[in-house]
Design a protein around this nucleic acid. Sequence first.
DNA 1: AAATTTGCTTGTTTTTAGCAAGTAAATTAT
DNA 2: ATAATTTACTTGCTAAAAACAAGCAAATTT
Lengths: 119, 119
Amino acid sequence: MANESSAAYRRSPCPVACALDILGDKWTLLVVRDLMLGRSRFKEFMDSLEGIPTNILTDRLVRLERHGAVEKRPVPSGVRRHTYHLTEKGEALRSVIRSLVDWGLDYEEGTEAGLEPSV
Amino acid sequence: MANESSAAYRRSPCPVACALDILGDKWTLLVVRDLMLGRSRFKEFMDSLEGIPTNILTDRLVRLERHGAVEKRPVPSGVRRHTYHLTEKGEALRSVIRSLVDWGLDYEEGTEAGLEPSV
DNA sequence: AAATTTGCTTGTTTTTAGCAAGTAAATTAT
DNA sequence: ATAATTTACTTGCTAAAAACAAGCAAATTT
């Protein structure tokens, strides 16, 4: 999967446009949501209800890391596994997620929060 | 351009997932931003710095209308022109846009608010 | 009345998403 | 200890969406 030129491409200096250059798709913010719920392993993201495809998940984790919103930590034992965590920049997205939760709950029927450690 | 089956397709009952089914792409929230800045005509959206393609703009306006976030008003004179406006549901996205503005300003260098009637 | 602008539609190309299968290391079960 | 399973991915293919370009008719401006 090609990246969008790896250098920081930017459509305009608008902070919204810029945020959407990073976050603007169907999956990225769901991965962020999962990270906020304390999930940290590849499999845990996979197991979310929405069923993200593996290659998309890989791509999004790489992109979030590249943009400094996610940190990839190796699991001590020196093995291949790692865990993913939000950086301060990633944590700062909490209010975005919260607004989306509120909007969804208020205007889309049949949605329910049910996200254990409240986002 | 095909629509995603017109019936309310939903990946999961999560309000975030549901919100992203509607808003999760590079352009939709920029159109919402423009509407919040008081822009209401096709040309005005076109003139935004990001340069949205005409067919994408048409599609996003239709989708937002279909989801009840935008209202299309005919201009009195009975002519073909109309203006687009946020409904209450669309207005409720203001906090989402605001969070994105804040995040962009805080973490993406070179972004500037400069959006006249403050979003 | 001619030229330009507005608000689109249509077609084509390019990019991205999504699905399915495969793989090697690590873990668990026997 | 060995086999089966699970985890964490990669690769290849197909389908969908975005992007680009052109065209066009109604409305507005010159």
